[in-house]
Design a protein around this nucleic acid. Structure first.
Lengths: 248, 248
DNA sequence: GATGAGTTTC
DNA sequence: GAAACTCATC
């Protein structure tokens, strides 16, 4: 028996909004420590990795490790049926082919339950390796979203150049070119508005804005995003989901 | 070398929002006194005239008269990349084929620069002649926008009839007709809410609402609009852009 | 609270 | 391409 209740159900809704355009289906691996997902997009260009700690749920019960293979579009459709202030309980029996979602309004007056068929997905079980990066940049997630959206007006890809002075985002295309320089902030009133850079090595890397714009769909999950860069290694964007976990 | 910094960059963004549906491309003529644009819409029905005084910029430097021919759609795209509270600096070297736009956030933490290719546009260099009008009406720009939008529901053109009592806007069409009478206001609390009429001669003229609705895209630039009318002469709408200049 | 622009969905 | 929804602004 697996059962996990998330008081703030809107978080799960936002997680699905963040990944539904990228990941067609995914295995949700449930263990006593929590829930995690690793899935590639359909073009195998990017990897989505979600980890949610058991401590973010109450109650959380996982008698035995269980893998819930789900169609992302279907899950997203079902979660659209939850109100933002509903709690969401996910429940699955041992060796079942369905999973249940229970949405409860704060005053308990409305209880919805949806049952979805599970899939058998063979996954390669990739993960994002823990490693040293040349540059780790923290910035407001809305700022990063804005940069990607703006540079999409100019070109298809963005060159990210990080030095200790700041990060420069550059694009070029038919109408000309655009460069956005973000300086490391000295001291800002709001911590979440801060731009901070940990630099081992200056880096200059180029990425497709198409994918970055997919990734920034996670912006509502967190006011901040952490971007890790390293030569010949995929870029990592890390959105912290409160105390619950994170989405990379 | 031409360089002009506009602290309130949102003004330039609004100017482009106002003209981008009307003017496909335009020459921006820069001289020591400021920047001006005269351009006809693609159907040669209307003329857009912008004049921005050098005194509205700080700094403003124009060593030699220079003409910057720009695609309006491209310029608009680039200006969409500026935040409303950014300052905008326009810079062009002598005999160059590109122009640079620098957007700086108020705290200087983000600096964007965009470079756009210039065009060689042969323009007829028309202007709006200075002349006496039969009627000069000042009214809230939002009110005029609303009138044009509402009457578009009724018909394709509006008859504007101005006497010393007031202005009457009339349209008719399949579903019936509509008339909006605006009386000259005696005294209003807010000066910008005032309707005032300077009348030499009562006039009655008809205009295509399609174009008036293009013109009212300039509404965000100014709370007031001045409409000048004269028999056999094009209508003029004048939107004052603060101390910077105006758009007609 | 209302309006408009942008984004997304059908 | 039209309509609905969301977000931001007034």
């Amino acid at each position: 028996m697996f059962e996990a209740k998330l008081t703030q159900g809107s978080l799960l809704k936002k997680i699905l909004d963040a990944i539904k355009d990228l990941v067609p289906s995914a295995n949700w691996e449930c263990s006593s420590t929590g829930v995690s997902v690793q899935a590639m997009d359909s073009s195998h260009v990017s990897l989505v990795s979600i980890s949610l700690s058991s401590e973010g749920f109450d109650p959380f019960r996982c008698d035995r490790n269980i893998i819930l293979g789900m169609e992302t579009a279907s899950l997203s459709k079902i979660l659209k049926c939850a109100s933002n202030d509903d709690s969401i309980t996910v429940r699955a029996e041992e060796s079942t082919d369905t999973v249940s979602f229970i949405f409860e309004s704060p005053n308990q007056e409305r209880v919805c339950d949806y049952n979805m068929k599970l899939l058998d997905i063979d996954s390669e079980h990739l993960g994002i390796p823990e490693q040293e990066y040349d540059a780790v940049i923290q910035m407001p997630s809305s700022e990063f979203q804005r940069i990607c959206r703006d540079l999409t007006q100019i070109g298809d890809s963005v060159k990210i150049n990080c030095t200790k002075e700041g990060v420069k985002f550059s694009a070029h295309g038919d109408l000309g070119d655009g460069n956005i320089l973000l300086k490391q902030s000295a001291s800002v009133d709001k911590e979440e508005d801060q731009v901070s850079i940990e630099l081992n090595e200056p880096v200059e890397l180029t990425f497709a804005l198409r994918y970055l714009n997919f990734f920034t769909k996670a912006t509502p999950l967190s006011a901040k995003v952490t971007m890790s860069l390293k030569e010949d290694v995929p870029l990592v964007l890390d959105y912290r989901i409160g105390e619950l976990g994170n989405l990379k």
